[in-house]
Simulated scan of single mutants.
Amino acid sequence: MIIFGTRVYLHQLAILMLTCRFCGNPAAHAVRKYVTKFTLFFVPLFPVSTTYATQCTFCGAEQEVPKEWAEQSQAQAAGATSGTA
Rank of each mutant, 00 (worst) to 15 (best):
R7N: 08
R7P: 02
R7K: 10
R7F: 07
V8L: 01
V8S: 03
V8T: 05
Y9I: 09
Y9C: 10
Y9G: 11
Y9D: 14
L10G: 03
L10N: 04
H11Y: 11
H11V: 09
Q12N: 08
Q12V: 08
Q12A: 02
Q12L: 05
Q12F: 06
Q12D: 08
Q12K: 13
L13H: 04
L13V: 06
A14I: 03
A14F: 01
A14T: 00
I15H: 14
I15D: 11
I15V: 15
I15Y: 10
I15W: 09
L16I: 08
L16E: 13
M17P: 07
L18R: 13
L18V: 11
T19D: 13
T19Y: 09
T19N: 09
T19M: 12
T19C: 11
C20F: 10
C20L: 06
C20A: 08
R21Y: 14
R21N: 15
F22I: 15
F22G: 10
C23Q: 08
C23D: 07
C23M: 05
G24H: 01
G24E: 04
G24K: 03
N25M: 08
N25V: 14
N25F: 04
N25C: 12
P26S: 14
P26N: 09
A27V: 10
A28M: 13
A28W: 15
A28S: 14
A28L: 12
H29P: 02
H29L: 03
A30K: 12
A30D: 13
A30V: 09
V31R: 04
V31K: 04
V31D: 06
V31C: 09
V31L: 07
V31T: 08
V31Q: 07
R32V: 04
R32K: 07
K33H: 01
K33T: 01
K33D: 01
K33I: 05
K33C: 07
Y34I: 15
Y34D: 11
Y34C: 05
Y34K: 14
Y34R: 15
Y34T: 12
V35F: 01
V35N: 01
V35H: 00
T36Q: 03
T36C: 03
K37L: 02
K37R: 05
K37C: 02
F38G: 06
F38R: 09
F38V: 10
F38W: 10
F38L: 09
T39A: 02
T39S: 03
T39G: 01
